[in-house]
């Protein structure tokens, strides 16, 4: 019965299933899945890809067992501020980074295991009015935060013992930065999307703000998910939570836009719209390589091939719980889908 509830819908007569249900984990003490992620965790010389689940008051680490089962290893209890996001830290092990806050992020914390005193612990990385945060390679976190006077864009390097090793500031743009993405193919480049719908480019090594490029008025409040440089152009994958439906593009969830960083001119390359006949809109999602997944306001999860611009799978809501969050696994082609009742389903894409 459980498997029937989470069987992917096949679109437009597709014969093969693009999403294969693997396993389900359910935290009986958790009320609602706030976020889900995967993390490499090493214990007793064995390094495994584990699942991290977050509800408002706690974060749990789940270890894979035989026969597609999961064992809860540990639960970190958090304080009065609710957990609102898990922040993936690429290429790290035994580190979970989380954001806590109410409407906006108020704290960034690290959750870890300390072998020194054989205990699980947590440490504060940053507090303030934090607008956006992203985990970068080499154990770094970039965040934008605002005070009464100005905006601060800061990079913090963290160690696997939970200590902040180094802090560096980047030149802030005038407008608030709402999302960041590293630029694949240019090791020291970072982009961010801003509240006035611009893409900013920084040099991570020098902290310079190199360029601001306007995205256009048709797609307000665009959020960057991925960026890569190819043939002298900067390609940025954007989501459009507030885009209006149009006859030419349907209801766009994701868009790939090519920018010429030298001239700040841009052109749309590919649209990924909601499936035909599907009502509602994009709520939140994640991009990995050429794949995008998002939760829609209908309670479904949709998956797109960004290069083809087409929806490749659609997970309907369960009979008793809607989808709340979707994330790509850090390794392989796994998809983690969280339901409102706190359970998480693992799929292979």
């Amino acid at each position: 019965t459980e498997a029937e509830q989470v069987t992917p819908v096949l679109l437009d007569g597709l014969r093969e299933e693009n999403l294969q249900f693997i396993s389900k984990l359910k935290d009986s003490s958790s009320s609602c899945a706030v976020d889900v992620s995967s993390v490499w965790w090493e214990a007793a010389g064995c390094r495994e890809l584990c699942v991290v689940t977050a509800c408002e008051s706690s974060v749990s680490l789940w270890k894979p067992q035989a026969l597609d089962c999961w064992e809860k290893v540990y639960t970190w209890q958090l304080g009065e501020i609710p957990v609102i996001q898990i922040i993936p830290l690429p290429d790290t092990c035994n580190l979970v980074c989380i954001a806590l806050g109410n409407l906006e992020i108020e704290e960034i914390r690290l959750l870890l295991y300390s072998s020194e005193n054989d205990s699980f612990k947590q440490s504060l990385v940053k507090s303030g009015n934090i607008k956006a945060v992203l985990g970068l390679k080499d154990g770094r976190l970039v965040s934008s935060s605002t005070t009464m006077q100005e905006q601060q864009v800061e990079i913090v390097s963290v160690s696997e013992t939970g200590r902040c090793k180094d802090r560096q500031t980047l030149m802030p743009p005038e407008e608030t930065v709402l999302a960041f993405a590293e630029v694949e193919g240019v090791s020291d480049a970072l982009v961010g999307t801003t509240a006035v719908n611009s893409v900013a480019i920084w040099n991570l090594k020098t902290g310079q703000l190199l360029k601001k490029m306007h995205i256009g008025y048709s797609y307000p409040a665009s959020i960057c998910h991925r960026a890569y440089s190819d043939s002298g152009l900067l390609f940025v994958v954007l989501s459009h939570p507030h885009a209006k439906e149009s006859e030419s593009c349907g209801n766009p969830a994701f868009r790939v836009v090519a920018f010429n960083p030298k001239t700040a001119r841009s052109t749309g390359v590919m649209f990924s719209s909601l499936p035909p006949g599907h009502t509602g809109r994009y709520l939140e999602g994640e991009v990995k390589a050429a794949c995008a997944a998002a939760v829609l306001s209908s309670g479904c999860i949709a998956v797109w091939d960004l290069l083809l611009g087409c929806c490749t799978a659609l997970l309907p809501p369960g009979s008793d719980s809607r989808w709340a969050v979707v994330r790509w696994s850090a390794a392989g082609s796994g998809l983690l889908a969280g339901q409102e009742d706190g359970s998480v389903c693992v799929y292979r894409y």
């Binding site: 040099n203 030298k262 001119r265």
Partner: peptide
């Protein structure tokens, strides 16, 4: 897209912008 849509393209855009931008 063509060069004429986006203007002249440089493969070294990152290095060029870094040398032009204020420190």
């Amino acid at each position: 897209c063509s060069d004429s849509d986006l203007g002249p393209i440089s493969l070294d855009w990152f290095e060029e912008l870094s040398s032009e931008a204020p420190p």
